[in-house]
Design a protein around this nucleic acid. Structure first.
Lengths: 235, 235
DNA sequence: TACAGTCTGTTCGCTAACGTACAGACATCC
DNA sequence: GGATGTCTGTACGTTAGCGAACAGACTGTA
């Protein structure tokens, strides 16, 4: 229990809950370690658990074909996976794939729904998170439409870095291509360019952030807009 | 009141409410006529009213710059404008612009929130609608990323036709370009092609649907996917 | 009837991204 | 130590869409 409380302080949604509500939620949760590339569920599946990441982060993906897809959301310690349960629908709208291995608090769906019933504060926080998610979804839609691969890549690296404990994380060009919905070659070129500018370095799937400020300058404004949306609703 | 009941039967969300709940909602609503191009509110504005369109339909837009933007949603008699009030946030996430003139039931925000408190059935229906909206938002994101202008145009025409009383509606190439986030010339070419295939005809801002089946064949699958998402949750 | 405004058609060169294919570098496992 | 698989680099021609500019057609008002 003490360890649970320790890690819970790292999920921002939990930290902004009143103590009573947070402790009740933690009491029904179990700490788990999520491993890289683990698929927690696919679009259309029942949602068996809700996850509050504390160290891990999770990609929300819409598969298009076998080797094409698109990331429509990213959930780390600023958020929660399975928030659509709030809407009374236990069917996952997207595939959830662990993109950064690490810890999370896991809660059984039935227990979570029961707790949701009890806790007004929890409902309020998750409603706000859902609102933020919607706005960020719309932001992604415009980003996909208007911005160049290099800018979108820089944005994704920043978003991921924000949710990561370390400056290095594992992701190959192939998977980045899937996430951004472009060719692998497009990623290789963009990444190469970022590396030459000393903003990142990478080697066989391990990317290291060298210069956040430089990345921000190169990323599209969507990054800052998303941050501001989050801050003004859940800050 | 009798007229209100008559028109309300044309908004699908209202029709699937239990009689009691629907009548209470109608009692606090007022019928209004929305006129073409009217901006009901902009992103960041307070939401003064909720609208259940019965004949009108409304574009949800994210402005990017003065003459660029992107449609992220379309609300007609299958839906409701202002559903994010469900989430306890009275700030509009998008601009709402009347795209098809016509009737709607308008409800004052405070009255609506009070009624939401009273009616479990209303909450359930709107939760489902919110879930559908999220999935459709994500679908738009992938559509923007992968599909060609002609296919996206065909999809938009079908979606609009579904929400319209007539086969002809008013929209210029300039505005279609704004909606789809492309150049005006891109629309002119795509529309020209659809016209040559006798799927539509148009003249100075008035577009007429001639062949729905042909349009469906040309539109991307996003159209069918959206329909199926709606049907399986609110059908 | 002339004029101003709006809407559509067409043209120009340009570029980001596409699909495909192959080569080299590195890692792992027998 | 050789073989196999994975990851990154590079090259090819192709294309959808871009920005900008201008012409013609229609509409409503003076």
């Amino acid at each position: 229990m003490l360890t649970n409380q320790a890690v819970s302080s790292v999920n921002h949604l939990l930290t902004i809950l009143p103590d009573v509500d947070r402790e009740r939620l933690i009491a029904i949760s179990e700490p788990v370690e999520l491993s890289f590339a683990e698929v927690l569920y696919s679009a259309g599946d029942a949602i068996p658990h809700v996850y509050f990441p504390t160290g891990a982060f999770i990609s929300l993906l819409t598969p298009v074909s076998a080797d094409t897809g698109l990331e429509v959301g990213l959930v780390g310690r600023e958020g929660v996976l399975g928030v659509t349960l709030m809407l009374g629908i236990a069917i996952a709208p997207f595939q959830a794939r662990v993109q950064g291995a690490g810890a999370a608090l896991r809660i059984n769906t039935a227990l979570f729904l029961h707790e949701l019933d009890q806790s007004l504060a929890l409902r309020q926080v998750l409603k706000r998170y859902l609102y933020v998610s919607m706005r960020q979804l719309a932001q992604s839609a415009t980003c996909n439409r208007f911005h160049l691969v290099a800018a979108r890549l820089a944005r994704w690296l920043l978003m991921t870095h924000d949710r990561s404990d370390t400056d290095t994380f594992h992701v190959t060009h192939v998977f980045l291509a899937y996430i951004l919905g472009v060719r692998r070659v497009g990623i290789t070129k963009a990444a190469h360019s970022l590396q030459q500018q000393k903003l990142i370095s990478y080697r066989r799937g391990d990317i290291t952030i060298l210069d956040r400020t430089g990345l921000k300058a190169l990323a599209c404004t969507c990054y800052q807009i998303d941050l501001e949306t989050y801050r003004s609703n859940l800050g």
